[in-house]
Design a protein around this nucleic acid. Structure first.
Lengths: 115, 115
DNA sequence: ACGCTGATTAGATAGGTGTCAACCTAGAGG
DNA sequence: CCTCTAGGTTGACACCTATCTAATCAGCGT
C-alpha cells in the first residue's frame, strides 16, 4: 500500500555484486512476490506490452479462464506492489506499467553489470 | 522439483515487448515466487555474491534471526526454483548461484530491449 | 430517475507458506 | 562402534492467498 512510495528510493546494486541488506530485501521482495503468480505475470506482460502504453481491464479479463473479481484482485496486487498504475476513464479502467520499477528489479537480477 | 529442467528451455523475450504466453508464465512465475521473500532474497544475494562463487550454509544461517530448519527450508525453495545449486563436501554443504536463470529473469524484466 | 454495463469490494473457503521444536542423516574422529 | 557437529526432514501451527459468489460502486444512455 505504501510500497509504491518507498520503492522508488531503493536502488539497483546487482544482487550478485554485494549482499542485499535486510531493509532493501524487505522492500523489494513484495515486488517479486507479485510477479510470482502466472496470472499476474501474464497480466503485467499484457499491460507492459500494450501498444498505446495502456490497456483496458475489459481487454484483460477475457484472456483468462477466471472471473472478473479474481482478475481485479490480481490487478490490485500488482498495483499495491507498485508495478502498475490504474486510471479510470469513463466506464473503463486502464492500466499502465511503471517501467522504472521493472528496470530496478531487472538491474537487481542482472548477472553481468552494465560495465 | 522438475522446474530446474524445464526452465532452461524457456527464454528471454522481454515482458514488455510481447505477451508472455501462459506456458512460459507457468514456468517462470515459480522463480519469481522464490524471490518473493526477504529472507530468500538475502540468501540468494549472499550466495551469488560469495567471493569464491560458493558459500557454506554455516555462513548463511547465523546471518538471520531464524532457526536452522527455517533457513534450510528457504534454501530448498531456492534450489527447487532452480536458482541455486547445493553440493555437500565433507561435513559442510555449499551453495552456488545459477547465473543463467538470473540472467533470464533479468532479461524478462528488462525495460529497454538490448537492441 | 432507472437500468445497464464495467469494475471493485466483501465474505467464504480450500489450499499454500513461514516458522518452530523434535527428530533423523551424513561425515569426521576418536 | 560411539559420539559429535552440520544440515536436512517431519509434523504442527498460525497466517496468508487464489478463487468463487454475491453485493456494491461508477458512469453512460435512455
Amino acid at each position: 500500500m505504501s510500497n509504491q512510495a518507498t520503492q522508488d528510493a531503493v536502488c539497483c546494486p546487482p544482487l550478485a555484486e554485494r549482499r542485499v541488506p535486510a531493509e532493501a530485501a524487505a522492500v523489494l521482495a513484495p515486488a517479486f512476490k507479485a510477479l510470482g503468480d502466472p496470472v499476474r505475470l501474464q497480466l503485467l506482460s499484457m499491460i507492459a506490452s500494450a501498444e498505446s502504453g495502456e490497456i483496458c481491464v475489459c481487454d484483460l479479463t477475457p484472456a483468462f479462464d477466471l472471473t472478473g473479481p479474481t482478475i481485479s484482485h490480481h490487478l490490485r496486487t500488482l498495483r499495491e506492489a507498485g508495478l502498475v498504475d490504474a486510471e479510470r476513464r469513463g466506464t473503463w479502467v486502464y492500466y499502465r506499467a511503471r517501467p522504472a520499477i521493472l528496470g530496478q528489479l531487472a538491474a537487481l537480477l542482472a548477472v553481468a553489470p552494465a560495465t
